[in-house]
Design a protein around this nucleic acid. Structure first.
Lengths: 344, 344
DNA sequence: TCACTCCAGTACAACGTTGTAGCCTTTTCG
DNA sequence: CGAAAAGGCTACAACGTTGTACTGGAGTGA
């Protein structure tokens, strides 16, 4: 069987507590003693039993990450960034998928499986602001990417509204005035969809363009298939448009494909911008203009915040809200052709 | 504080062991007793402390999944499938990223963090067959997607060689004879890259086409950037080619973009096929023909195998190797234009 | 009726670690 | 130079669960 502190203590000729102290880098140990213990540890190949440590200390060294689906590139890249940020702090990440389903999300918050973690990073999608009370949990919780205004918890996000404003304004700058949107969510005001739609509307307003509901297409889950379906619906409506703002890249790439199936040229006939700056957006044809939400920064901050909460027996501090910097990325899908402009 | 078995036992008027027996669905409990205990559990909102259970029983209900990077869509979709398969068996998944780095992979196998899991699903990339001995670990281990011939462990994969053969043969059927390959790995014979390259060569041989090393481009990590770089390298070489077999979809999509930048028409000038059938492959322009490796099946089998090993105190059974069924998916990137064929 | 098995449940220890309390020795400083 | 403080270490209990061993009583068959 695996070696325990007792075995190490016996070999080193010290008490088990001293072994524990060495392992945990506690102060007040003579260099000579420390060396003896470390030699014994090396000799036995001792590794602490994390279950026992967890039982005794209440810490597991694990954080949970609950998100809709890893198949969605945004969340895959986010998970990647979170895992890297966690690793820098010696934490491992346990991932749960909610499929963006409200009931699964609510269930998750009370799952006994959370007992295996010290805290949770939670990226909700289906919950509404009515569910905010559910977020009043007893363990450290940090929300990712969604703003639940009345919520009692820490929250890391980006300036969704301003970023959407910037994306829309960019299309307007390119000379477009009939800007379609794909990805709105029924009745959502609070989530990413709602905020981004708000940014879109405020940019229109600023440019004195009337908001036309016929240009808005709903989508629940933001995947390529729904983006494609959304674009088909839009084309079927027969409303004219000269630009598309996809509320995320995956949706947008699905829509892009359908546009081109219908022989619409991007960006000449329809300028297109997405949101998220997933890796794929650089390699589509045309490459996709988008908003870079600063994913590594979001992940880093979120893990830091959670680690603080876990460490801080500080008690109930005010919930904090942190916003990452975003950046508008101009690529081919909104490139203004100088020659065309000149010749017209 | 949270309720424990003692609290439940006190309320129900039974011993703590009886509470434990009820929780774990052990036999020999009178319905009346069971009901009393369940009522007490409900009253207190009791949830077992998993750390304590784990310490006592040695089981954590968690499995580890070690893979190169979640940012690579293949692995993101694989992780998604694994999480779903694990959930069906009441297991949670702890994900570690190796970045395909050999030293990280080797370190992972001895990481103390594995103590938090009952077993490991491991998708190695950087390890060579020299490292096979390292796989002789004391905990349940199942390898994913790589064949380490001499390895002592269970292994779930697909018929890489046959599938690559089928993909290449499909291009040949389309009338192509100068088939480029992107994604080979230096000196790799055993990994996916090596096996797929072998399938490619055997298909060429079968069609009496000479293998031309100038058509083979290396790539270490299979991401879009390396696919694009690979295609640029290929074009720079100036060797003529009329088809591309990308050893995975992500590489291939990167290459596809570069082909089109150079005004090469797909499939007319260059027919293209990938490998993996990631979601994105349906929505590229043109949509990408590829090999569907049966990801859900692979995940399901792998989790089942691992669960068996965990459950089975059976001891050292023969290592098992299971292969999922693959499928050739024909899409636009290899579509033969009937009209063109007819008019020529 | 007796010996046996089976059922339903109990008492207690043990898993391997860390927190608390305490003890002896050394250092510090008025 | 003596009292107080700090350093270095030990002994023991406790975290909450499950496995083992055991105990009465009910049912079974000769």
């Amino acid at each position: 069987m695996a070696a325990t502190v007792h075995d190490v203590a016996a070999i080193a000729g010290v008490s088990i507590k001293t072994v524990s102290n060495v392992v945990n880098n506690f102060p007040n140990i003579r260099p000579a003693t420390r060396a003896k213990v470390q030699a014994a540890i090396a000799e036995l190949g001792y590794q602490p039993n994390l279950a026992a440590r967890s039982l005794r200390s209440g810490r597991t060294g694990t954080i949970g990450l609950a998100l809709p689906e890893l198949s969605l590139p945004y969340f895959a890249e986010l998970a990647d960034a979170v895992i890297r940020a966690a690793e820098r702090r010696g934490l491992v990440v346990l991932i749960e998928q909610t499929n963006g389903d409200r009931s699964r999300e609510l269930a998750m918050l009370n799952s006994p499986r959370l007992k295996l973690t010290d805290g949770l990073l939670f990226s909700p999608l289906g919950m509404t602001d009515d569910d905010a009370a559910t977020l009043n949990v007893t363990y450290p919780l940090v929300l990712l990417g969604e703003r639940i205004l009345t919520g009692p918890t820490d929250h890391v996000s980006m300036r969704n509204e301003q970023a959407a404003h910037a994306a829309t304004a960019h299309l307007i700058e390119c000379g477009r005035r009939r800007i379609a949107v794909i990805g709105a969510r029924d009745g959502a005001v609070i989530g990413s969809a709602g905020l981004r739609l708000r940014g879109y509307r405020s940019a229109l307003e600023e440019a004195d363009i009337r908001f036309d509901p016929d240009l808005v297409v709903l989508a629940q889950l933001w995947n390529r298939g729904n983006g494609a379906a959304g674009m088909r619906e839009l084309l079927a409506r027969g409303v004219p448009f000269d630009a598309l703002f996809g509320l995320n890249d995956t949706l947008t790439l699905g829509a892009l494909r359908v546009l081109q199936e219908h022989d619409l040229k991007v960006p000449d006939d329809v300028a297109v911008i997405g949101f998220d700056n997933i890796d794929e957006a650089q390699f589509s044809l045309p490459s996709l203009s988008t908003i870079d939400p600063g994913r590594p920064e979001i992940a880093e901050i979120a893990v830091q915040l959670l680690a603080d909460r876990i460490a801080g027996a500080a008690g109930p501090t005010e919930p904090r809200e942190l916003l990452a910097q975003f950046q508008l990325i101009r690529r081919e899908s909104t490139a203004v052709r100088d020659t065309v402009t000149a010749s017209s």
